[in-house]
Structures are given as structure tokens and as C-alpha cells.
Amino acid sequence: MPEDQPDSSAPSSSSPEPTGGAQNIGYWKANLRLIIILLSIWAFVSFGCSVLWIEWLNKFKIGTLPLGFWIAQQGAIYVFVILIFVYALAMDHYDRKFNVKE
């Protein structure tokens, strides 16, 4: 299993890490930071814009629809899709950077 041999053919990594353990800790911290940022956006559009502040947002319009209503029934869903792909792409980057790729 070539994947299991450590540092056999390490891809052109930008930051060479000393040991597997330190790499893994750095990878995990970067992952947690990313998760927190993305989940904040998730909570902001779902619980924030679509529930807590929906009445205020409804004073504005998108096209002919009240804005809060549109976010709750359309906009937030688009944001969710984007969040997941951003996470997948960013993690591809971290997988390479910390050399933990499968």
C-alpha cells in the first residue's frame, strides 16, 4: 500500500513538517478553525437571517419578494451548498499542506 509509507513521495508541500505527530496536530487545528468559521456562517443565515431577524429583513425586497422570506425559502439553501464545497476544497489544500493526503 503506497499510501501508507510515510514521506515516500511527498508532494511539493509548501511547509515541510518535522514529525507526523506535529503535522497531525497542525492539520487538526486548521480543520477546527475552518469548521468554526463555516458553521458561524451556517448559523447566521439559518437561525439568524431566516428566523431571528426575518421580520426586519422582510422590510426589504428582492425582486418583488420580501427579503427575509426569500432567504428562508431559497437563499440560505444556496449558501449551504457553497459552504460544503468550500470546505471540501479548503480541506484538499490542507491535506496537501500538512501531508496527510490519502
Binding site: M1, E3, D4, D95, E102
Partner: peptide, 9 residues
């Protein structure tokens, strides 16, 4: 489980 490497074992 936290790192992807080795999922092919």
C-alpha cells in the same frame, strides 16, 4: 480517524 491518511487499508 481525524486524519485522512490510511483510509485505504
Amino acid at each position: 480517524v481525524r486524519i485522512p491518511r490510511g483510509s485505504h487499508d
